[in-house]
Amino acid sequence: MTRYCKNDRVLEASVKLLESSTFELNEENDQATAVFMTREMAKNAGFSLADEVMVATAVSELATNILRYASSGSVRVTVIQRGDERTGIEILAEDKGRGIRDLKLAMQDNYSTAESLGLGLPSVERIMDEFEIESDFGQGTRIRARRWL
């Protein structure tokens, strides 16, 4: 398994999970549902409109990738809290698709195997405060990312 973390920092383990929804992704409409529900959750957690849209955009990117490269998988969105009471949103995107051979490469701007812009993963890394991607080539991909309020 290979792993890449934003700023070389693994996600902090000690966070409280407050509320969580899991969205199974099998077809295009599932993505729209996940994006819509994420906006609701972010709004209720106190995120501003701009932040709410950003977190939803990150979910949209990850859901697009799952449907496009792995055909199916899931996204779990959780409202979380740190020791200092700061609230955030955590996204966990998982699939059992073909995985990613070279994570460094996949995380680069403009790298795409699908003739798309290749901006999805790098933009999720930029949008989110904490970001971690793990992949077993041939086995699947797992991404966890957090944005704090």
């Binding site: 990117e61 697009t64 798309s116 812009l117 999805g120």
Partner: peptide, 13 residues
């Protein structure tokens, strides 16, 4: 449009 991700932007382009 509520949200625009990079794949959707790519199609618009």
């Amino acid at each position: 449009l509520a949200v625009l991700d990079s794949a959707a932007f790519c199609v618009l382009r």
